[in-house]
Amino acid sequence: QVALSRTQVCGILREELFQGDAFHQSDTHIFIIMGASGDLAKKKIYPTIWWLFRDGLLPENTFIVGYARSRLTVADIRKQSEPFFKATPEEKLKLEDFFARNSYVAGQYDDAASYQRLNSHMNALHLGSQANRLFYLALPPTVYEAVTKNIHESCMSQIGWNRIIVEKPFGRDLQSSDRLSNHISSLFREDQIYRIDHYLGKEMVQNLMVLRFANRIFGPIWNRDNIACVILTFKEPFGTEGRGGYFDEFGIIRDVMQNHLLQMLCLVAMEKPASTNSDDVRDEKVKVLKCISEVQANNVVLGQYVGNPDGEGEATKGYLDDPTVPRGSTTATFAAVVLYVENERWDGVPFILRCGKALNERKAEVRLQFHDVAGDIFHQQCKRNELVIRVQPNEAVYTKMMTKKPGMFFNPEESELDLTYGNRYKNVKLPDAYERLILDVFCGSQMHFVRSDELREAWRIFTPLLHQIELEKPKPIPYIYGSRGPTEADELMKRVGFQYEGTYKWVNPHKL
């Protein structure tokens, strides 16, 4: 086992960053958080920038500027975001240094004079007029057009580079997404736009490419001749908990499936790229999406959770019991969808996408189930092999396979070949997804960000279904809070070829 401390991990990262040409360590950078008073800024962006600063992973002359409508001070920003920093008493001095680099400007999102004030403020910072500028839009999409237009007109660096990070949702359907994309691309070049999907920053999602293309053993079996089906799962054990009003506007397909799960599907299904260059990788992902037809209604199961009468606390409440959810809402909190990649490698292999709230566990994984062994000599005792990439929690890679049961006879039983990170790298604290992705933006690497043509294809696949749901308002199937979801989803999976045995229990190697 390799035991690495946080300091050692960050030392390795620093070495990698400083050796590259793309990370300008000594240049002045300004990180501007648009929507600095909001939840995302408070819980994710400010803490992430602090962790990067604490670990010495930001360029040395980096300033952080918050911008929002609320009249706040840096002290206010500190008060609301610091509880999420997880700072230790030993880091007190470092924390003071961090907040000394912070400033805040209040202004409207659609007022040109406010942006001119913001620009004057940035120019007044040390070497601010020639600094590289990175704008993070932690804002609702309704203000994107006004904000990007004003940034472009008043706040661009004339000497350094300018980059803009856009948070999902990128529209509600193909038409609104196209409108937003066309607007942003009329102001910024594609190499300046970073559409963030934080799932692409997760260690195991990034590991998929290495697993596939750096190991000879997987190449020959990664196709329709050997793989019976692919299941991509995202499960949350909690409901909307008072935030249903926002969720109800989008629903589970827009929230998770059309982005996170579809991105994971691309990494499983794509061909080997010409290189690890950002556009070479994204070219292959677009090719996969172009091979997927629009979702067919007979390959869809929609569910909505109801309270568990035997549960406790939140578990007793259904989705419609959330006071922020519109009365009688038919918005799905669970969806199972089957897609097919219609190309030579994957023809006929079902890709089953499942996601839901208020389920029995927290889990995100990719599961490849292989065909049955031909010419069975073990009297149907063999179960199908599976390769599982567990994204969260407890990152893991393992192969479910058959071995001989101890004893006199040739009785096979299920076991696993474990390729888990935790076994080799004991207690290594890896940077989280937002840390990686923000560092990628500083480096100018777009590999783990969504390109406009990729986004367009993703919406093309799901828009007809979303429009049909909005028009017909089908009643989702009720499922109990804390269950596996509607049984109809299991029946759909069985119908397209997935075999669920229920006889195997994964042993978490992190707890051995």
Rank of each mutant, 00 (worst) to 15 (best):
Y398D: 03
Y479K: 01
I469N: 07
V301G: 01
A433N: 14
A396N: 15
R460N: 08
G422I: 06
E470I: 05
V286C: 12
T399E: 06
M257P: 03
I352E: 00
I480N: 07
Y421F: 13
F409R: 12
V428D: 15
F442C: 03
N360E: 05
N343S: 11
F334H: 04
E386G: 05
V301I: 09
I292D: 01
V300T: 11
V341W: 00
N308H: 09
M402S: 06
E314F: 07
E488M: 08
S293W: 05
K285N: 09
N423S: 13
L492V: 07
N423W: 08
V373H: 12
G485V: 00
R484D: 14
P393Q: 06
D279T: 10
K383H: 14
I377K: 03
L466M: 11
C291W: 08
N343H: 09
E457Y: 04
E457G: 02
Q468W: 10
A433K: 15
V256N: 08
L430H: 13
L339I: 10
G311Y: 04
G485D: 00
G303Y: 00
K505H: 10
F442M: 13
G356K: 02
L471T: 13
N360I: 02
E416K: 12
L439R: 06
N360P: 03
P273G: 00
V325T: 10
L466V: 12
V337S: 07
S278C: 13
K494G: 08
V391L: 14
V325M: 06
D321P: 01
V388T: 13
L466D: 04
Q258T: 15
N298G: 13
L265F: 07
V337L: 10
V337A: 12
K511Y: 12
L262M: 12
K363P: 02
C382Y: 08
E342M: 05
R456Q: 09
C355T: 08
D432N: 13
A489G: 04
A433T: 15
V450D: 00
C291F: 12
Q296L: 13
D321Y: 08
L492H: 03
L262I: 02
L353F: 07
L302F: 11
P273T: 00
G318V: 00
L430Y: 13
D283M: 05
R367E: 05
N427F: 13
D440S: 07
Q381I: 11
K494C: 14
S329E: 03
K290I: 01
L320P: 10
N277L: 14
D440L: 02
Y421S: 14
A335G: 09
Y434D: 13
V349S: 02
I469E: 06
S329Y: 00
D280A: 14
F370I: 04
A458G: 14
P406I: 14
K426I: 12
C266T: 14
G348W: 00
S293L: 07
Q304M: 03
R390H: 14
A374S: 14
A433H: 14
K287S: 09
Y421K: 05
H371K: 15
Q468E: 09
Q296Y: 04
N394F: 14
N360Q: 04
H448K: 07
N427I: 10
H379F: 11
N427Q: 14
D310P: 02
E294T: 09
A336R: 02
L339A: 07
G318F: 01
V391I: 08
E416G: 12
W459R: 12
L368A: 04
K494Q: 13
N259H: 15
R495E: 08
G497K: 14
P326F: 05
T420A: 14
G502Q: 14
G307K: 10
N298A: 09
E361N: 15
P478T: 09
Q296I: 05
R327F: 13
D310I: 11
Q263T: 14
K285W: 08
N308F: 09
V268C: 09
